[in-house]
Structures are given as C-alpha cells and as structure tokens.
Design a binder for these strands. Structure first.
Ligand SMILES: NC(=O)c1ccc[n+]([C@@H]2O[C@H](COP(=O)([O-])OP(=O)(O)OC[C@H]3O[C@@H](n4cnc5c(N)ncnc54)[C@H](O)[C@@H]3O)[C@@H](O)[C@H]2O)c1
Ligand SMILES: NC(=O)c1ccc[n+]([C@@H]2O[C@H](COP(=O)([O-])OP(=O)(O)OC[C@H]3O[C@@H](n4cnc5c(N)ncnc54)[C@H](O)[C@@H]3O)[C@@H](O)[C@H]2O)c1
Lengths: 227, 227
DNA sequence: GCCTCACTGTGAATAGAATCACAGTTGCAG
DNA sequence: CTGCAACTGTGATTCTATTCACAGTGAGGC
C-alpha cells in the first residue's frame, strides 16, 4: 500500500467507535451539527476547524470536540474536520443515511401541515401513510398519502415498512394509541398531543408541546421584566 | 384574628419567593405540573401529595418538591398541595394568568394550523395578528386573524399589544426578521424555522425543530437495535 | 528532512442537576 | 391535650454535563 493511500485512509476515514454511553444532550446537538455541515458543503467548504464550526452551531469548541469524540475520531489535527465525510458520518450515526418510512396518526390541521411539509424528505424521513378515526377522512388521499382506519394498523404498518410514528391526534385514548402503535412494531414515537405518554416497552417517545414552549418563553420574558 | 382564619392563611396562601436562580429545566417542567393540576382540579381533587403528583407528571417526588421550593413554599405538611391554589400560582409564575397577545410570522401550512388551534387560548395565549411577505396573503383574514405586510410591523404590533412572536416563515432572512421583531418590542420568540437564530439583545428565542426530534428518535431506535 | 505552529482528543477540574435522607412540622385519632 | 404517623422543605451527596488546559501530533514552510 502506497504512503499516499495510507495517509488518505488515515486522514479521510473516520475512526468510528462502537461505543458505550452517548449523552442525550449530545444526540440533540447532532442534528444541528449536521445541518451546519450541509450548509458548509453546499458552500464548497472542504475542511473546518472546531472553533469556526462551533461558532456556526452556537456551542463552545470544547463541547463540539467532546460530542464528536464520543463517536470516534474525525478530525485531522492540522486541517480540521472534513465537511463532506463528517456529514455522511453524522447521517450514518443518526440512521438517516437512507430514507425511513413514518406513519402519521391524526389527519387534522397539524397532521395535514406535516403531510405537506417537504423538509422531512431532505432529512431522510418519508411520511408514507396516515391513519385517522374520522370516517370522513378514511379512504381519502392527503398530499399523496392514503388515510387508513385505525383498525387496519396491524396489517398496513408492516406493508409500508414503517419504523417511526408521529401522533397528531387527540388526548383521548392517547396511551392506548401509543401502545397499539408500539405493538405493531414501531420503536419510536414523536408525540404532538399535550398529554403524558408512558413509553411502551421497547419504544422511545419524544414529546413536542408547543404550548409548553410558549409558557417557558412567557416565564422568561416575565422574569426578566421584574429584574 | 381567629385561630381558624390564621390557620387558613397559613395553609392556603402560598409563600412566594422573589427568588434568585431558577433552573431552565425546572421551568420546562412547570407547564407539565400545571397541566396535571388542571386535570386534578377538573376531577375535583382538592389536595395531593408529592408522591402521587410526581407519579402523574412522570418525575420523582424529590424533584417535584425541589422544583416547587425554588418558587416558595406551597405544601401543607400533612395534607399535601392545594390543587387549585397551586394551579393559580403556577399560572402567575409563568405569566399566563391573563391572556397575552402573540403575533405569527408566516401564514403557510404550519402557520395556518397554528392559527386554527384552540389549545393556545386555554393556556393564556392569543394569536392576535399575522404577517406575511406574500402579497396574495396580505390583507386576507385567516381564522379570524388579519394578515399584514411585514412593513406594517412597527405600527401594528404595539396596536395589538403583542408580547411574543411565533416564526413560521422561511430560512431566508430569518435573523433579520427576528431582529426586526425584537426591535418592535417583542421579548420572546418561538421559532419553527430550522435555522439558527442568534437571540437579539433582550429577547429570548426558543427553537422547535421537528426534523431534529425525528433525527433524535431515529438515533435512539437505531442505537437500541444494535445493542 | 526538520522545525514550527496551531489543532485535536481527552484527562482533570468545575459547574450544575437529580437524588437521598432526615429534621421539623402538622393534622388527626384517641 | 398528647402522641403518632407521615409529609414537606432542604442540607448533603451523588451523578452528569461542560469547560479548562495541555500533551501529542500532523501539515506545511523552508
Ligand atoms: N394545530 C396546532 O397548531 C397544534 C399545536 C399544538 C398542539 N397540537 C396538538 O396536536 C394534535 C392535533 O392537532 P390538530 O389541530 O390537527 O387537531 P384536529 O382536531 O384538527 O385533528 C385531530 C385529528 O385526529 C383524529 N384522531 C382523533 N383521535 C384519533 C386516534 N385515536 N387515532 C387517529 N386519529 C385520531 C381526529 O379525527 C382528527 O382528524 C392535538 O392533540 C393538538 O392538541 C396542535
Ligand atoms: N409545515 C410543517 O409541517 C413544518 C414542519 C417543520 C418545520 N417547518 C418549518 O416551518 C416553516 C413554515 O413551514 P410551512 O410549511 O408553513 O412553509 P410554507 O412555505 O407553507 O409557508 C411559509 C410562509 O412564510 C411566508 N414568509 C416567508 N418569508 C417570510 C418573512 N420574512 N416574513 C413573513 N412571512 C414570510 C411565506 O410567504 C409563506 O406564506 C418553514 O421554515 C418550515 O421549515 C414546517
């Protein structure tokens, strides 16, 4: 093997780590890293140092390096990080390097907005199918995606190879819905319904409570006003 | 003052604290606490202990007590917490005991879903007005709310006494938009656009990145699969 | 080929959040 | 009125995340 090839391998191929513990907070920053890497790649940047990279993402360089180090070693000491290479690696780590099918539950106002959103495809997610309890909606096609009745869940989900689910239904029966979805083989649920869901066995649940965000902001704005 | 009255005051009136430091994580749990208190109140529960309360919210009793203690003392040692009283106090702490006006920027699919959502009013927020750059949308009324051109921002926001803003526009010019909004007197921004915003001076920014949530879930589901 | 410079990856130190554990209180039973 | 049982609020502790700081390294200049 020539020195060039060897050197290239050393500097280009990230040493991924089949590692132990990765903090949840690190995971949350990962998508921000990937987004910045994508922009840099579009701008034709080949290498970037932790200092500038961190500046673009809005974290400290130390934190960036620490986060990355929990997945392996990526950086070339003098040149910094290879933008393209590392973007690919991030996608691989997050499992978004190939498109995954997602199912939507609840084709209301929010559900339809999600269905017509293009951004998910760019990030490796495809809402392949929708479900609703409303008989007026079942059988119809929304933004190209068919809406099924909840009863068809167990047969339809495997058919579309659905790995993740988004809940935009109603608070009533939310836990039961989550349990059914998990039982049908879904291992990750994104929940928009403002009600607590106890994660079913073997299934991750992530909540997005928009009102809660507003409340947090309200508190902060208020608190500052009184200081 | 009779003993009864004195006892009642001691047990019912929360001792609020004009306190020092409140952790951000505590603030985020506050809305969950309030939601549960509301449900309990609807169910006619008068008092509840930290143990059961924590169970309903999904935190440990110790954490609940610690969180509450950073705002003052609420609990009656033997009877627990007064559900109604504490619900009111939570609202007051978060500044949601009276309705606040919110402005929406970007009347696209997501913006319209937010406009027709009833849940915000229940939580003390009222989207009073909308803005868009699209001339087809300016002047129209969406779910009862008028859509203005961005240029009218400086005059319209004070008119509606807007305290907070929601951004559901596009990535282009996002920072400039945030800066303008903040300059018009808004101190808190909820941003749905997947692009980093540097908080303008004196303004809090909270981001909700739905794709990032999916990416996090994808990572978790993947990671578990390989364990 | 060697030297220099500035960068990464990571132990050590610090800051911060969650949990433990209990002193002190209070409602209530008798 | 007294004693008991059980709860809160909080100091002390543990656990986790972030930042510091530097040894070791590689690219590029000469
Ligand atoms: N619209 C928003 O902007 C917004 C904002 C924050 C939170 N949310 C939450 O997101 C959820 C959806 O909001 P929305 O405005 O689209 O509500 P919506 O009432 O317009 O739509 C809900 C849809 O879910 C369906 N549904 C009800 N139970 C179901 C079940 N068990 N399985 C499948 N489908 C079911 C209904 O038939 C309806 O079509 C609500 O829980 C709401 O609180 C919405
Ligand atoms: N729709 C979704 O489900 C979804 C999900 C996640 C994130 N988002 C993000 O939310 C934002 C809105 O999504 P959408 O689907 O409604 O997009 P959209 O393209 O349907 O609507 C965007 C609206 O914002 C307006 N706009 C653009 N620039 C503006 C500005 N500077 N000031 C005011 N208005 C402006 C446009 O005219 C348009 O009406 C996007 O940035 C998108 O990435 C949307």
């Amino acid at each position: 093997m020539s020195d060039q090839v060897e050197a290239a391998m050393r500097s280009e191929a990230p040493q991924m780590r089949a590692d132990k513990h990765v903090s949840l907070q690190t995971v949350e920053r990962l998508s921000a890293y990937r987004r910045v890497l994508e922009e840099l790649d579009r701008d034709g940047v080949e290498y970037i140092h932790s200092q500038q990279f961190a500046g673009l993402v809005g974290v400290t360089p130390a934190q960036l390096r620490r986060d990355l180090s929990s997945f392996g070693t990526f950086g070339n000491i003098s040149r910094g990080y290879n933008v393209y290479q590392m973007g690919r690696t991030m996608s691989r780590i997050m499992g978004t390097d190939s498109t995954q099918s997602v199912a939507l539950f609840g084709v209301g106002d929010l559900g339809r907005a999600l269905l017509s959103y293009r951004g998910f495809e760019e990030r490796g997610f495809h809402i392949a199918v929708a479900f609703d309890v409303d008989q007026d909606k079942v059988g119809r096609v929304f933004a190209g995606r068919r809406c099924y009745a909840l009863e068809e869940l167990a047969t339809v989900l495997p058919e579309y190879e659905v790995r993740m689910a988004v809940l935009a239904s109603r608070p009533e029966g939310l836990q039961a819905l989550a349990d059914r979805v998990a039982a049908a083989g879904v291992h990750a649920i994104l929940n928009f319904v403002p009600k607590r869901v106890t994660p079913p066995e073997g299934c991750f649940v992530e909540n997005t409570d928009i009102s809660a965000k507003l409340e947090k902001l309200s508190f902060l704005a208020h608190a500052q006003a009184t200081v």
